[in-house]
């Protein structure tokens, strides 16, 4: 086989990326299995016969080995004050993302704010439509006075190994400002977005624990959902809620 046909695989193998199947000489990074396979044998056979590729593989392995030291050589120890600053900034129990105002010092880019605000208004409207309870037949009571700027405390949701307890609340008629702020805060971070959104929806839109578990299961194997931007995740999430509610009644044990 020609060098140029193997170059990409050789590079990845030398760096230890390609599943380590084609690993050449050095041990794989921690935790990787090293299955023997024909592809690796093919690479090694080529290397045995080709000094040019051997040199290239050796240079790549050397670069990879040096990389941690290159980074470490630029490190200075973290100051003890940093630890104190962080601990001072987290007084109180940890809460789901968004329930507390951002203590972060990495503000969102300014150009994004109007777009995000518009997107949030749209998302809020969708939330209200999808999650608002159906009005019962008969004479209608006057609508309750809702202060959109009021903060309504979230229900208590406790978690212990093996036990999930959700204290029910009545679903709000509209998405409140507090929930919008909460979702906005979550949008700042893609990591854990789906879970955090589930927390918020559970607390502020009366998604039951049962629905949450079903939703989480449906998302767990879906990498695309975790990867897309959280607004799309939220939209998918709401679609799922709608489907679930149409499909099956809520079990009383976990009902709201």
């Amino acid at each position: 086989m020609r060098c140029d046909e193997l170059r990409e695989r050789l590079s990845l193998a030398a760096l230890g990326v390609e599943g380590c199947a084609g690993r050449l000489s050095s041990p794989p990074p921690r935790g990787e299995l090293e299955p023997g396979d024909a592809a690796g044998d093919e690479l090694r056979a080529h290397l045995a016969a080709c000094s040019s590729c051997r040199e290239r593989a050796s240079a790549l392995e050397q670069a990879r080995r040096r990389l941690p030291d290159v980074v470490r050589s630029r490190e200075r120890p973290l100051s003890p004050e940093l630890r104190e600053r962080i601990l001072a900034g987290i007084a109180g129990p940890a809460v789901a993302a968004g329930e507390r105002g951002g203590a972060g010092n990495v503000p969102r880019a300014r150009w994004k704010r109007p777009l995000l605000a518009a997107a949030l208004v749209a998302a809020g409207a969708s939330l209200a439509v999808l999650l608002a309870p159906t009005a019962p037949p008969g004479p209608q009571a006057p609508p309750p006075s809702i202060d959109p700027f009021a903060y309504s405390p979230a229900p208590v949701v406790t978690f212990d190994p093996g036990t999930i307890t959700a204290v029910p609340v009545a679903p709000p008629a509209i998405a409140t400002v507090s929930s919008m702020q909460a979702i906005e805060a979550v949008l700042k971070d893609r990591t854990g977005t789906t879970l955090a959104l589930l927390e918020i929806l559970e607390k502020e839109h009366a998604i039951t624990a049962h629905e949450r578990v079903l939703l989480y299961r449906s998302f767990a194997g879906d990498a695309a959902v975790a990867e897309v931007h959280s607004l799309e995740s939220a939209a998918l999430l709401l679609e799922k809620v709608k489907e679930l509610r149409e499909r099956e009644p809520q079990p009383s044990a976990l009902g709201r």
Binding site: I86, G89, I90, A94, V95, A96, A97, G98, E99, R100, A103, G104, F159, A185, D189, T191, G192, L195, A196, E199
Partner: peptide
């Protein structure tokens, strides 16, 4: 700080 906010999730 973000970790702390997200820890419950």
């Amino acid at each position: 700080l973000r970790l702390h906010r997200m820890l419950s999730s």
